[in-house]
């Protein structure tokens, strides 16, 4: 079986490695140019996951860690599709998310922010997209929180998102922001992205059509992975 190669990743759309105003990147960014590879099987294959890897509550952050009741916070639904650059759905692919609680505190041994841990909130979820590329999570809206960069930097409310696709070269981690948040435009991590349109694409829209009345408000967030490039005039036997 052969799989066609991927469309070249647009490195002017993604953040560069070195972004001086996000200070941690300064010592963690390679200085040499990346070596561009034409795809081989090492890039075009990737891991797959099945429903037996997961439990029913894995995508419900309101319930998947609850001990004595529901977590504190604004109840939200985050839903959308994983698509490729041709607009085609990416089915049965793993989507993992993680986030702070409603107070802006992460359940992590390294987070020491003074906002309290929520005893009923873990802060992670995972799911497979369906055959149309749809996914859905239920959670609480994460809080903004301060972080050490300049002394007065605040992260906008965000949810971290990890997606696989079918090829290891499609692997992507990004962050989802919320419509209307004034902190987005101020954030040095957001501003590592050079193109405003690419930033806008990471802002989930308030989706009143998908809210659950008297229960949970909804945000819609589509995720786009690299597509496979067309292979006109290239129907050669493999290996030629």
């Amino acid at each position: 079986m052969t799989t066609s190669e991927l469309i070249q990743r647009d490195r002017e759309w993604h953040p560069p490695a070195y972004t001086k105003d996000y200070k941690t990147s300064v010592a963690r960014s390679p200085r040499n140019a990346l070596l561009s590879l034409q795809n081989s099987d090492s890039e075009l294959t990737g891991p797959t996951f099945g429903h037996s890897d997961f439990d029913l509550l894995d995508n419900d952050l309101i319930r998947n860690y609850a001990k004595s009741g529901d977590p504190i916070g604004e109840r939200i639904i985050v839903h959308g599709r994983v698509l490729d650059e041709h607009g085609r759905p990416v089915p049965n692919t793993l989507v993992e998310i993680w986030q702070a609680n409603a107070g802006g505190r992460y359940r992590h041994k390294k987070d020491t922010y003074l906002a309290p841990i929520d005893p009923n909130f873990g802060g992670c979820g995972r799911t497979l997209t369906d055959d149309q590329g749809y996914y859905v999570f239920r959670t609480v809206k994460p809080g903004a929180y301060p972080w050490r960069n300049w002394v007065n930097n605040w992260r906008p409310a965000h949810i971290h998102v990890s997606v696989f696709g079918t090829a290891f070269a499609q692997r992507l981690i990004t962050q989802m922001y919320f419509e209307g948040d004034p902190l987005i435009a101020k954030c040095p991590i957001v501003k590592t992205i050079p193109d405003q349109r690419a930033i806008d694409q990471l802002v989930a829209a308030l989706d009143l059509n998908a809210t659950i009345p008297l229960d949970s408000i909804a945000y819609k967030f589509d995720i786009v992975l690299r597509g496979h490039r067309s292979t006109f005039f290239e129907n050669r036997p493999e290996g030629n």
């Binding site: 650059e85 998310i97 359940r107 041994k109 802060g123 990890s162 590592t192 995720i223």
Partner: peptide, 25 residues
């Protein structure tokens, strides 16, 4: 064509999402 979603850093708490045992729970 659609554009690939732009990458953002995984941040210091990536373990919560991808390896919660390492995050401590």
């Amino acid at each position: 064509y659609l554009k690939e979603s732009a990458s953002q850093t995984a941040g210091p708490y990536v373990h919560i999402g991808l390896a919660p045992g390492a995050a401590g729970f």
